[in-house]
Nucleic acid binder design. Structure first.
Lengths: 90, 90
DNA sequence: GCGATAATTAGATAATTGTATAAATATCTA
DNA sequence: TAGATATTTATACAATTATCTAATTATCGC
């Protein structure tokens, strides 16, 4: 379980981006316009999410489309289940 | 889902503390001696974990015993399951 | 109460991070 | 190729955070 994953999840803007991508895949611009911060700042957040492998990208002409990498989320769930999901100890 | 929760999980020392508490409840001192950083720094991390409600404390004489709050972990799992655990979309 | 032990809190500092603006890269259309 | 649009990268800066030492609080045993 990589450190970059948890750091990526620590920012509320990035979690909001992930929730947007739950609904449907979106381009960087479509994502950016949902936030009151500069485009470049959102792009930076997208880079963090990508580095953590939480999202994947695909170029479509001028656009770059972002999608959730659901595999990694399953790993997150498994992380919590195995380590902390058990019975409370004495 | 509170912001403090994800920020608390973002630090590797704090995640290590949580894993130690999975094995058994421990006092602040028992936890601190597992790390190469100053006692007071570990105490600070414990405060962050407590503020996020990831751990609970109980005084035992001179000692303060820490235990996992497993309820919150179940909430974390539920968070990921409901938002990101579904089928990949088209 | 006093000294010792356990732990937290206060104050300072260095490293990290989120954001901004400006510049660069990539693609499209004409 | 030139100009427009989409996005990222570079650079700088302010805010946050992790860590340290020192001081404080709480409890124990004598």
């Amino acid at each position: 379980m990589d450190d970059s994953l948890f750091r990526a999840l620590a920012d509320p803007t990035r979690r909001k981006i992930l929730e947007l991508l739950t609904e449907k895949d979106r381009t960087a611009g479509e994502i950016a316009e949902q936030f009151p911060i500069a485009f470049a700042s959102v792009s930076h957040h997208l880079g963090v999410l990508k580095a953590a492998d939480l999202v994947a990208t695909e170029r479509e002409g001028q656009f770059i489309r972002y999608r959730l990498n659901t595999t990694v989320f399953q790993e997150v769930v498994r992380y919590f289940m195995t380590r902390f999901g058990g019975e409370p100890h004495a």
